[in-house]
Design a protein around this nucleic acid. Structure first.
Length: 888
RNA sequence: GGGUGAUUAGCUCAGUUGGCUAGAGCAUCUCGUUUACACCGAGAGGGUCGGGGGUUCGAGUCCCUCAUCACCCACCA
């Protein structure tokens, strides 16, 4: 088949993916006897569209998965999507707002219905785009965080934790988003710096500072450090009456060590309902807590004349009033403070006290390796003990740092989209409340009791995500049977038994805490095993200038879908792999994608050439190495295949790719194919091409499969389902002979290029090696001819890279100019020899260094000395006989 | 305030447990249309591996220190 000169990726990719899906090569087979390799794909938001972060993780996980298949493993790469509770909820609320309505007006049921309709369509988008990236995932096992099975798992875990006393309900300060009317986790709070005003007010005998006067209505405690000498005359518990916003107030003095005496006046009042720190102080001393701002962000009746106002509106008015009362001491307009915002909804966070559900991370209820441990302890143990390996290793420190400071995890959210808390309440006429915690809604009815009503809260998205590695492997049919326990489901789900723990989790370092740590927490607790053995953390993809790509700055965004259309998926994948390393951010620009597009085209043209030479019929019988070049390329191929495998297995993707790149471009294309034009070995050429396609496949699946499908001598087969082969053996002496040919050719190219001569010939005398390889040398070095001379003479330029006596017929005057190069080379050699001699002359080196290293040094020295003596002969020839070169 | 990482060629980055005469891609310069490929081929230039000190036979690699930059966490009454 005749292929066009240029590889036009978009003409093939869709069909190739369809071919793969049809062939079933991505479908895992738990009944096979093969070694297992399993990855859970981090589920993208179902409403999302593909960005470079997805492109990167798909690429890396695909490289691993395809490579594992190539190694003959049974691979499960399980895809799925996440319901992204807060983000989706916010999106729908925004839609409602533009329609002039809101969630309360349409009600919970309609809201959920609407959300489901909306996300139903958008999930196709992200899944299509993941296909476009070439992801070799098992679509038959695709899961969604709100699937019935996963929902059941969520409820089962909640109930189990509740029964173990790990889940409790309590009044705590939460990060309240008044826009979305939900709380968000600490990790989802973004702080941004903002210039604001800082006020100092007179409060009884004290001066107190604040940036938030609107919270101060109810303040009736002044807090200071117990050792602050300025306030030594005041005792803990003393009271005084202070004139305040809405009249006199009786205040109590509290001494607490959390106050920083050097900040401001060293005295502050507290607002326990709206500040974490203040809440903690109040808890320590058993103080009253009063709500000032309601859950919509408006002031409560305690603010009297200001009640019902928004904070922004009320603040200046309150300051004005305090000023009129003569209580404003100073006003500093340039106070830098950070504003807490919801990273999902962008609303400004108002700390509030709410009744919330929490997971206790410190309660020792787990049996782990024979010890009674808390979740926090297990989280640390699995990494400490090496049950889970984090790559790169330095992120273990980040992980420990985070787990050390871990507080109880607030898992309830007040939004509607998500897994609803599996708790039901009912009341009776006497106002008594009964609580039921269970997987299914209770069905019993009792005289005098009202209907059961479910807790309105939903669970943090990360709660369901934390079960991802195993909840996705639970048999969906079994999960429908309510008589089976969670343990039964584990015991009877063949996928779970076969593929869990997963081999590796591949994700970005930015969600180490959100997701990775929580998966470890929940999975060790529920299943008694780790969710994955290795964690590979990739870096973020940044712009060419090192900035974060951001939606607010669309110029900076590289859209993978656009890139795929223009350069092909493989070019994008290769660009993402090239120069990536664990935990390190990378920069991606067009030039890098272009370079890799060119590499794809190179492979394409290699294939075109080989197909052209081989023709439609290939005789595989007796495929073997004949020439030195044949032996050499087999040797290189075997080495490359091995190194690429090792590197991928050890997550050194960039290095694996570099090896592949140089093997294909430098060794195969530039040397072997060129050499084979002189000494063709057609079956071996085809053999090397096939193996190149096999080893390149994980990196550039579309291109390699496209080529594979066009190979007329291949039977119906899918490259994606092929295993790596054991490379034919080669003779190392023959391979070394080709390396000598390379050295000779390289030297001739250097000389002719440096001297700007062409059409020169190489002569030799008593040099059977040159005679043997004369054709290949002639062609690769672009010589006029290679011929045997009757005797050696002083004309021409002798080669120094080989012991063979051979010389270029360059006229002596030109050759004289080459003396400079020779002398420079000589200088370098002398320096090298000096260093090597110094090393070997050092007794402790010879004594302490490993034997093979010393041997290697000796060999290096020998080679360097040989080369030097050859160089010396040459330079002398020029130096001694300057008169002879002038000529007539 | 606590922590982590980075600093290697003009640019972007590799460089495993110390064994290096420090690599790659892009860019630059010179030459070149040859049974695939100009999205190509051949060749070249370019680095006291941020500064200083130390350990070692040997340091880009380990330790200390300084400088600069980036990021994460906590927090600012």
């Amino acid at each position: 088949m005749k292929l066009p000169k240029i590889y036009e990726a978009k003409e093939y990719e869709e069909n190739i993916y369809a071919l793969w899906e049809k062939s079933g090569v991505f479908t895992a087979d738990p009944h096979s006897k093969k070694e297992r390799f399993s990855i859970s794909m981090p589920p993208p938001n179902e409403t999302g569209t593909l960005h470079l972060g997805h492109a990167l993780f798909v690429t890396l996980q695909d490289v691993m998965s395809r490579h594992a298949r190539g190694q003959g493993k049974d691979v499960l790469w399980l895809p799925g999507t996440d319901h992204a509770a807060i983000a989706t909820n916010a999106l729908i609320e925004k839609q409602l707002a533009t329609e002039g309505t809101n969630k309360h007006e349409i009600g919970r049921d309609d809201f959920l219905k609407r959300t489901k309709e909306f996300v139903g369509n958008s999930r196709d988008t992200i899944n299509t785009q993941i296909r476009a990236m070439g992801a070799s995932v098992d679509w038959s096992r695709s899961r969604y965080t709100l699937d019935d099975t996963l929902n059941r798992c969520v409820n089962e875990v909640f109930v189990k934790m509740y029964n173990d006393g790990l889940i409790y309900r309590g009044h705590r300060i939460v990060n309240w988003d008044p826009n979305l009317e939900t709380n968000v986790s600490d990790d989802e709070v973004d702080y941004k710096e903002e210039l604001g005003k800082f006020y100092t007010f007179q409060y009884g005998p004290f001066q107190i500072g604040t940036a938030r006067p609107e919270t101060k209505f109810g303040d009736k405690y002044v807090v200071m450090h117990p050792d602050d000498k300025r306030y030594a005359q005041y005792n803990h518990g003393d009271t005084f009456v202070a004139e305040w916003i809405n009249g006199p107030i009786t205040a109590t003095i509290i001494k607490d060590e959390s106050v920083d005496p050097s900040f401001g006046t060293g005295v502050m009042t507290i607002t326990p309902w709206h500040s974490q720190i203040d809440f903690e102080i109040a808890e320590r001393h058993g103080l009253d807590k009063e709500q000032i701002i309601d859950f919509h962000g408006k002031l409560l009746p305690i603010a009297k004349e200001f009640a019902g106002m928004d904070i922004a509106e009320a603040r200046p008015k309150i300051v004005a009033k305090l000023k009129s009362l003569g209580l404003l001491v100073t006003e500093n307009g340039e106070y830098m403070h950070s504003i807490a915002t919801n990273s999902r909804g962008k609303g400004v966070i108002e700390p509030q006290i709410r009744l919330q559900w929490f997971i206790d991370v410190n309660k020792p209820v787990m049996d782990w390796k024979g010890k009674r441990c808390s979740m926090k302890q297990v989280m640390q143990a699995v990494v400490n003990d090496g049950d889970i390996k984090i790559i790169p290793k330095n992120y273990e420190k980040v992980y420990f740092n985070w787990t050390n400071n871990l507080r109880d995890w607030c898992i309830s959210r007040q939004i509607w989209w998500g897994h609803r808390v599996p708790v039901w309440y009912r009341t009776n006429g006497d106002g008594e409340v009964e609580t039921f915690v269970g997987v299914e809604m209770p069905t019993d009815t009792s005289e005098g009791w009202h209907e059961w009503e479910q807790d309105p809260d939903t669970l943090d998205t990360w709660f369901s995500s934390s079960l991802w590695t195993w909840s996705t492997l639970i048999d969906q049919d079994l999960a429908k049977d309510p008589t089976l326990s969670l343990q039964d489901l584990f015991d009877r789900s063949i996928d779970y038994k076969t593929y869990h723990p997963t081999t590796v989790l591949e994700t970005g370092w930015d969600i180490l805490q959100f997701w990775v740590a929580r998966m470890i927490l929940a999975t060790t607790y529920v299943t008694g095993e780790v969710p994955f053995k290795d964690v590979y953390l990739h870096g973020l993809v940044r712009t060419e200038n090192g900035r974060k790509m951001s939606k607010s700055d669309p110029e900076t965004i590289i859209d993978p879908i656009e890139v795929i259309g223009e350069y092909g998926t493989d070019a994008l994948r290769l660009a993402l792999v090239q120069g990536t390393s664990a935990g390190t951010d990378q920069r991606l620009g067009k030039s890098k994608i272009l370079a890799n597009r060119n590499f794809c085209n190179k492979i394409w043209n290699i294939a075109r050439y080989v197909e052209d030479v081989v023709g439609d019929d290939l005789d595989r019988e007796g495929t073997k190495a004949i020439s030195a070049a044949d032996h050499w390329i087999l040797h290189k191929l075997a080495a490359a295949q091995q190194k690429i495998s090792d590197d991928i297995t050890q997550y050194r993707f960039s290095e694996a790719y570099e090896t592949l790149y140089h093997f294909i471009w430098d060794d195969f294309a530039d040397w072997y194919i060129e050499a084979s034009k002189v000494e063709p070995n057609i079956s071996l050429l085809a053999y090397v091409l096939e193996n190149v396609l096999l080893i390149a496949h994980p990196f550039a699946p579309f291109l390699t499969e496209t080529i594979w499908q066009t190979l007329a001598w291949e039977n119906d087969s899918v490259l994606a389902g092929k295993q790596l082969r054991t490379i034919l053996r080669s003779d190392s002496k023959e391979a070394a002979a080709f390396q000598e040919v390379q050295a000779i050719v390289t030297e001739i190219r250097f000389i002719t290029s440096a001297m700007k001569v062409s059409g020169v010939s190489l002569h030799y005398s008593d040099a059977p090696f040159i005679w043997e390889h004369n054709q290949i040398i002639q062609r690769l070095a672009r010589l006029k001819e290679v011929s045997e001379a009757e005797s050696q003479n002083n004309d021409g330029l002798y080669l120094t890279s080989s012991k063979q006596r051979c010389w270029l017929d360059i006229d002596t005057a030109t050759a004289q100019n080459y003396l400079r190069e020779l002398q420079a080379k000589e200088g370098r050699q002398i320096a090298v020899i000096k260093q090597l001699e110094g090393r070997l002359g050092n007794e402790s080196y010879v004594k302490n260094a490993p034997k093979e290293v010393v041997e290697q040094t000796k060999q290096q020295l020998q080679e360097a000395q040989d080369l030097l003596s050859t160089l010396e002969v040459e330079t002398q020839r020029f130096t001694i006989t300057p008169t002879e070169v002038t000529g007539p």
